[in-house]
């Protein structure tokens, strides 16, 4: 029975007795939703593909071999580097980087605009930004396809205005994929930058102007460095999901815009799939992202010193 008495102290028996059990749900969530799936994927990537999908419990490096190495069409030539998948990765990185840049160019001024409105109206602007995201991503991407297609409102409108005579080929191009990624992930850029700009002390800009800095110099020397953490957070939040995106490339792009997400997606669909290979591609993608994040974190800690 709990009688009134001294408060439990961190680190003693009471801590072990009370706080640890309370932390259990957290550990359960992390374990079941994060560690377990990744571990499962890691294990699958070393298993053998079963005909018609699924796996056999036979450990092998075949999936990674398929990704990196080619031995010719019939498997009898000397091993060479397989460029097919690496180039898909390369293209995906480019697409994701471009989408990130586009989000940054539009997202930064947007975030700045919202953060500099009177406190009362900021909430409304933020709400407007997030409204479209109440709708499922698949539906939004399909709608975008509808808007951009040859007989869609965009092309018909331009033709009606007499600006063009033939419909613009937007759908099934890199541009459409870019627009799709941009549209999908823009709020992930706006929100962290907004949070940083909102905390920005505008007296710093006045101090800079007082010390002979032009507007441009103030932006470059003071504003950008101070809100940099927000910008970087936004870039990571857009770049990482863009890299693995499959809805936008699938629905808006054509065969030439094949991205990692679609490659992985394909491996787990139907009888054509290859689960271990899909898992291996996912593991390689994840390693790549982790390496980028680690490099960034190291650069940060070194910069702080």
């Amino acid at each position: 029975m709990a009688a009134p008495g001294p408060q439990p102290q961190t680190g003693d028996a009471a801590y072990r007795g009370i706080v640890r059990p309370l932390l259990l749900p957290t550990w359960a969530v992390i374990g079941i939703l994060m560690v377990l799936p990744v571990a499962l994927m890691a294990v699958y990537s070393f298993l053998t593909k079963e005909f018609r999908g699924g796996v056999e419990w036979d450990f092998t490096l075949a999936a990674y071999d398929q990704f990196f190495v080619t031995r010719g069409l019939f498997g009898d030539e000397p091993p060479q580097i397989e460029w097919t998948y690496i180039s898909i990765f390369w293209r995906s990185i480019w697409q994701a980087a471009l989408a990130t840049l586009l989000c940054l160019l539009i997202g930064f001024p947007t975030a700045w605009f919202i953060a500099t409105r009177p406190a009362k109206t900021r909430g409304i602007w933020l709400f407007l930004i997030t409204i479209p995201y109440w709708v499922n991503l698949l539906i939004r991407t399909v709608s975008l396809r509808f808007l951009l297609r040859d007989q869609g409102p965009l092309n018909e409108g331009l033709i009606d205005l007499g600006l063009i005579s033939e419909p613009l080929q937007i759908i099934n191009t890199n541009l459409a994929v870019q627009l799709g990624l941009f549209y999908s992930y823009l709020p992930f850029m706006v929100l962290p930058i907004y949070a940083a700009v909102e905390r920005y002390n505008f007296a710093l800009s006045e101090a800079a102007a007082d010390l002979y800095a032009s507007r441009w110099a103030t932006l470059r020397e003071i504003v950008l460095p101070v809100v940099k953490p927000g910008i970087i957070a936004g870039c990571i939040l857009v770049f990482v999901p863009s890299l693995g995106a499959f809805l936008a490339p699938d629905l808006l792009g054509g065969a030439k815009t094949f991205m990692i997400g679609s490659l992985i997606d394909e491996q787990f669909k139907g009888s054509q799939g290859n689960w271990p290979f899909g898992a291996a591609v996912a593991m390689i993608l994840m390693s790549l992202v982790l390496i980028v994040l680690l490099l960034y974190a190291r650069a940060q800690t070194r910069g702080a010193r």
Partner: peptide
């Protein structure tokens, strides 16, 4: 402001 030969010590310093 950046063309005035005047400098300010701000109340809350506003150091970079």
């Amino acid at each position: 402001p950046n063309h005035r030969p005047v400098n300010t010590v701000f109340q809350n310093y506003a150091l970079f």
